[in-house]
């Protein structure tokens, strides 16, 4: 099946991003995407990651042994024994964004349980980043909840919201407030399209809050599942007065996996900023010496 040719040594790399909702993988040969895959994350992230890696390899016509290095990222990275190194999704998104468009200065990513804003410098290094608080307002999970309450399929939220005819104020402070406001509106017979448009605006304002902390600098790149929602894209463009770049011809959810693959391809160089750095940093833990909190008291 696989090429198994020595000619691929040092040329094929893979990245795997195991997120809270979906697992993504990208395979690079000579810096070009030759395979990718996307699947829901199951109850065992370790298996989900391996399966999506296998799918991406199959799409590229490769086997695991053809790959010089695999980098894992996302929440599932902590249980990815099939990977060679792990890097956070923040760094992977930055790397992926710089790979796609070196002029990217700000990434907005709306994932399943996090939404994040990452500021980049001209070298593609992270200048600053901010993630949502514990509250899920502004994340994919929040949009899922809204679609359930409104009885609208997730993928229909965007197109439907573009038909709204009135602006409504919905709180972006807290998912619980927003939910209760939506239920109040439904109880009063408000139309779903107006409610959804208001929800998109609330999410956009939430993201604007994160952007405020990191700073607004073009070009913007919008990634994650949220970038597939046309209504949300429109709301963000309206709130930010800016246009976005998305990943050309690819699913915007792949950005983290792409960045992981790019980092894997650089992994042969042992310098700061490459996956090897984690080995340098890892030190045995120092035991708590005074153990103030751990000594039993007679």
């Amino acid at each position: 099946m696989g090429l198994h040719t020595p000619a691929l040594a040092g040329r094929a790399f893979a990245g795997v991003d195991v997120g809270s909702q979906s697992a993504k993988s990208v395979v690079l040969i000579d810096g070009r995407i030759t395979g990718h895959a996307l699947a829901p994350t199951g109850p065992k992230p370790e298996e989900s990651g391996y399966e999506v890696l296998t799918s991406a390899l199959a799409a590229a016509g490769l086997e695991r042994s053809d790959i010089t290095q695999v980098v894992a990222t996302g929440y599932g990275r902590v249980s990815a024994p099939w990977s060679d190194a792990t890097v956070t999704e923040i760094t992977c998104h930055a790397t992926g964004a710089h790979f796609i468009n070196p002029r990217t200065r700000t990434i907005i990513d709306i994932g399943g349980q996090d939404c994040k804003v990452i500021g980049l410098d001209e070298d593609g290094h992270i200048r600053d980043f901010a993630l949502n608080d514990k509250c899920a307002a502004g994340t994919g999970r929040f949009m899922e909840l809204m679609s359930r309450i409104l009885g609208v399929r997730l993928e229909d939220l965007g197109p439907l919201s573009l038909t709204a005819d009135e602006q409504i104020a919905i709180s972006s402070t807290c998912i619980v407030f927003a939910e209760s406001e939506v239920i109040s509106l439904l109880a009063r017979g408000e139309t779903p399209q107006n409610i959804i448009a208001a929800v998109h605006h609330a999410v956009a304002r939430r993201i604007a809050g994160l952007l405020h902390r990191v700073g607004l600098e073009q070009d913007f790149l919008f990634s994650g599942g949220g970038a597939k929602n046309t209504g949300l894209v429109a709301a963000l463009q309206q709130v930010l007065h800016a246009d976005f770049v998305t990943i050309p011809d690819r699913d915007p959810q792949l950005l983290g996996a792409l960045g992981a693959a790019v980092l894997a391809s650089r992994g042969t160089r042992a310098e700061r900023g490459t996956p090897q750095r984690s080995a340098r940093r890892r030190r045995p833990l120092q035991a708590s010496v005074v153990q103030l909190a751990k000594e039993p008291v007679a």
């Binding site: 602006q167 409504i168 104020a169 709180s171 604007a208 809050g209």
Partner: peptide, 21 residues
């Protein structure tokens, strides 16, 4: 009423964005 809400909400969220939710 709704327009008044939208404006009030904008101000509220501007303050929260700057200071804290």
């Amino acid at each position: 009423l709704r327009g008044s809400d939208v404006i009030g909400n904008d101000h509220l969220e501007a303050g929260r964005r700057r200071i804290s939710v």
